[in-house]
Amino acid sequence: MAQGILYGIGLGPGDPELMTLKAHRLIGACPVVAYPARPGGPSMARAIAAGSIAPGVEEIRIDVPMTPERAPAQAAYDAGAERVAVALGAGRDVALLCEGDPLLYGSFMYLHARLAPRFHCEVVPGVSSVAACAALAGRPVAARNEVFTVLPAPLPGPALRAAVAAADSLAILKIGRHLARVRDLLTQMGLAERAVYVERAGHPDGRALPLSEAPEAAPYFSMILLRKGGDPWLG
């Protein structure tokens, strides 16, 4: 029996209309749809793709604990990969949903590492959170020969400071509980006034604010964008 194909499908940042036509087509065509979820809660990935999922398909929910310790999540990916492997081994194509882009801080990469050595896999890129946040803020990400840097907020202070200092333009992802620390760092470096805070881009309640007006507590889906250069269309 021929094996099924694994499709790693980027869904974009949250607005179903930001899914690609290819993503919509493949989700609707696959007899199996798999997606990550937080234990005990709804799956954001499934919610984004709900209008594309055909009635009666098999659904594989992969509960992934969001804890600082990596072992529980790795065990969840191991178990989820084996459930997906059963479907692929039976000749059934699987649409594995991933918020944003599958290979930019995407959960799909952990399942890809476990399944790609055994099965044919195709990746469908999605609109990344960086692009969505820049669009909501109406801010250029980089211009001309500027170097654009993507940084995770959980980096230790000295490493984060050095990376910010070296960048021309940057996006700091995974702000969440690190907002106060990152804001303090940018203030100390004299860069806070150039920064914009964006949360939940691609969702109905998404918003962009000057960093100085950002809330004290940020959701996980939040980001800081910063360009050190002037307006790219001037001079």
Results as ranks from 00 to 15, higher is better:
A75S: 11
F108A: 14
G91E: 12
R83P: 05
S107T: 15
L111F: 13
D101F: 05
D101C: 08
V124E: 10
D93W: 02
A87G: 12
A134W: 08
A79T: 13
Y105D: 05
V86K: 13
A95T: 01
L103C: 08
A131G: 06
L88V: 13
L136K: 08
C98P: 06
H120F: 06
L111C: 05
V86F: 04
A132S: 15
V94Y: 06
S128P: 12
V123D: 02
G106K: 03
Y77V: 08
P117C: 12
A131P: 02
R118D: 13
F108R: 01
L103G: 04
A131I: 11
Y110N: 06
G100F: 00
Y105F: 15
A131Y: 04
V86L: 14
A76D: 05
C98W: 00
G91W: 02
A85N: 07
D78M: 05
V130E: 07
V94K: 08
R92K: 14
L96K: 02
A81I: 02
A135E: 14
C121Q: 05
A76R: 09
A132E: 05
L136I: 05
G106N: 03
S129L: 08
V94C: 07
G106R: 04
L88R: 01
A90K: 10
A113K: 14
C133N: 10
A81L: 05
L111A: 11
R114D: 13
V86A: 15
V130Q: 09
G106I: 00
L111I: 13
A131T: 14
A131Q: 15
R114H: 11
V84N: 06
S128R: 05
V127H: 03
A76M: 10
H112G: 01
A134L: 13
P125E: 02
G100L: 01
A90D: 13
D93K: 03
L96R: 04
E82D: 15
E122W: 02
G89Y: 06
P117E: 12
L97M: 08
G80L: 13
A95V: 00
A87T: 07
A85C: 09
A116R: 12
R118K: 13
A95D: 12
G91R: 09
S107C: 15
L97N: 10
G80S: 10
A116D: 07
G126L: 01
V86Q: 14
A131K: 00
A90T: 02
R83Q: 14
S107E: 08
A131C: 15
A116I: 10
L136F: 10
L115P: 09
E122T: 07
A116K: 09
E99K: 00
G126H: 01
C133R: 03
H112K: 13
A81S: 15
A95E: 12
A87S: 15
A90I: 02
G100M: 01
R92V: 10
A137M: 09
A79C: 04
G100Y: 00
R92H: 11
G91L: 10
R114K: 13
P125G: 11
A134K: 08
S129F: 06
V127G: 04
E99V: 11
A95H: 04
